[in-house]
Amino acid sequence: MGLLSKKDAALITDPFADNNPITIQVLGICSALAITAELKASIVMAISVLFVMGAGNIVISLMRNIIPSKIRIIAQLIVVATLVIIVDLVLKAFQYELSKTLGAFIGLIITNCIIMGRFEAFALANGPWRSFLDGIGNAVGYGVILILVGFFRELLGSGTLLGFPVLGDPIEKTGAYAFGYENNGFMLLAPMALIVVGIIIWVQRSRNEALIEEN
């Protein structure tokens, strides 16, 4: 990649695994859990956050020298809120049904801790290009977990992916259902999102011993 120096590339790849915003930095859990019962909603949420993070980090980074540090939280919130309104209106225009199901959670991107966290930790101290890369990297790391959770919950909970049946028809008893497989409706309920994320953390930490916490 000619455009990216090695240091810049690390900004994108680090949050992907070893510095993942959800499983390591513990940021942005709220929205990650509430909307992951369907894969489609997870993907849309991931894209929305990608847009808000990328654009927001650029704006904040450009303004970092003129924001007085006492009111920076309010300034940041206003920037994010404006971007989220754009996302909300676009979704309402092109994906009305989906924006109904996501409901208040699009609005809650504003208080998504990843966004504020990266503003505080990175965009206030770095130039626009690096901030943009950092935003994209973290948003992708967030999106990967979201899509992973959405994938398992929709597959095991309703036997579909993006609404298409992949395990056969549960009523006609075709595909996997012919062998007595049943959908686990429990996966669609809210608490299972927590447990799925817990298991992802477990798998990740057992593969990478350095991440294990002190008791």
Partner: peptide, 28 residues
């Protein structure tokens, strides 16, 4: 929970998620 023996990779964040999930099932 600090005094219990939890599998090392689950310590801290992992077990907190799972406990919260179980509490959420209780609250349902």
């Amino acid at each position: 929970i600090r005094y219990s023996s939890i599998p090392a990779p689950l310590r801290g964040l992992g077990i907190t998620f799972i406990v919260t999930g179980l509490m959420a099932i209780g609250f349902m």
